[in-house]
Write a protein that binds this DNA or RNA. Structure first.
Lengths: 246, 246
DNA sequence: TTCGTTTTGTTCATTTTGTTCACGGGCACT
DNA sequence: AGTGCCCGTGAACAAAATGAACAAAACGAA
């Protein structure tokens, strides 16, 4: 029911880069624009410029990369928090003091990256932010939000299920092949299904089916609902992306 | 003397509880004090009291449990962020709007728990906070910090267990999903409703609807009233904070 | 007060869940 | 090859959650 505006403009995330060294700002700009879904809407080389551009451009995200011996960078973050509540910030600084990090975290910075910048890490953070923002938009549409949704948002969608070498590390009791089958089954159906039905569909036991479905629920990939009747209600699983609204 | 006295006051984390219902505040106070390492230094039942106590007690952590239709609870969080930068906050509210959650996250709330409160979840959060604080102190001593340290802090040390589904420990006969549905129904309507109406709204039986509503009344989250007519009066339930008729 | 009416509060059969644990297949190491 | 160990699987079982049915309760009307 909520599809008021922002059909096209929302597909991009507007980024304001704040960096006192123009050369580095340029490097960062190029890098950001390579990541799909992001668009650099402005560059500022000091706090004053940054405030003006914040006012004018209303970016979704600020890459706050200004040198701070615990001063202007954090000040700017406070300014954003007070005057631009819809704007997020990723800190990129050389400040190694724990105090600065502390303040940034308490001010709700999305992430805090240390110089020298590792570009892979920046990319990963940007993609996490994109996921974060998608999730926010998705939840604005859905009428009901639960604790689990909030937990995912607060965790910054950090993908702890992927080990450092990129291979998905699975917990005990979860086999990759079976997981693939179950995932495929749940995605191929529109309506929700009980663990029992899915089990029969694939040819495994209800126990196993249930184990994998619950695992997927824990990941937040699918969601569970209840179907009431006589006796204990049936737990139905459904893929999260299924558009059920009109 | 089996146990020697606690060495220093600094080993405790001082908690200020902010909750408009004194009974629930008391329940929370007892619960917090059972967790080792925490000490409740004060209780406030409205925003004014809270500000005074923040000034006087300088708590490490605020349990911000005030009802907010996007107003006073978040206002207080902003106040804390502006005037008490060393203080953290955990939000505990019934607000199910994504906007409130968004603001809380952007204001750097440590966690956001939804009412009705699951105590195991609160405990888990408190322990995560304790770990977070220990980590902060440890890092203050060390001369240099790295990206990895920051990542751990930002993740809220959530590596302990899978969040939100460790062990909900709801009483027998209460299912989390059904509870969510009933809670959402009761919060989504302004006027009180009978158990029967709510049952039909969700698609469950009156028995079940009643069971959950009474559970919520027992928690003090909602309240019951009587509506008279012919025959036995009808029990109407309404969210406790929705009554502005005074 | 007594009766008819309407809703509550509770019990219990029913159906499904959630968990445990023996089995057996595969992998690594000898 | 042989052997031992680890781990995913599913049958069986105990526990849980629900709704139908019913007795008791609380009210207005007479």
């Amino acid at each position: 029911m909520v599809h008021p505006e922002q059909p096209a403009a929302e597909t991009f995330i507007d980024v304001l880069i704040v960096e006192d060294d123009p050369r580095i700002a340029e490097i960062n700009r190029r890098f950001i624009e390579q990541i799909t879904g992001f668009r650099v809407c402005g560059v500022a080389t000091d706090a004053e410029q940054a405030k003006l551009q914040l006012e004018r451009l209303e970016p979704h995200l600020v890459l706050l990369d200004i040198y701070l011996p615990a001063s202007s960078g954090l000040e700017l973050l406070y300014h954003i928090r007070q005057h631009h509540r819809g704007t997020d910030a990723i800190m990129i600084t050389a400040a190694r003091e724990i105090e600065a990090v502390q303040e940034a975290i308490r001010s709700g910075a999305f992430d805090y990256l240390m110089k020298p910048l590792v570009f892979d890490r920046l990319k990963e953070t940007m993609q996490r932010y994109a996921a974060f923002r998608r999730e926010l938009i998705r939840l604005s549409d859905s009428s009901s939000i639960g604790q689990h949704d909030i937990d995912r948002l607060l965790s910054r969608l950090s993908d702890s299920t992927v080990s450092s070498d990129g291979a998905p590390m699975l917990p005990k009791g979860i086999d990759k092949l079976t997981l693939d089958k179950v995932s495929q089954a749940i995605y191929s159906i529109k309506d929700g299904m009980s663990a029992d039905k899915i089990a029969k569909l694939i040819g495994i036991s209800r126990s196993t089916s249930r184990r994998y479905l619950e695992y997927l629920v824990g990941l937040g990939v699918i969601e569970a609902d209840l179907s009431y009747g006589i006796g204990r209600p049936e737990r139905v699983y459904r893929s999260r992306n299924a558009d059920d609204r009109h």
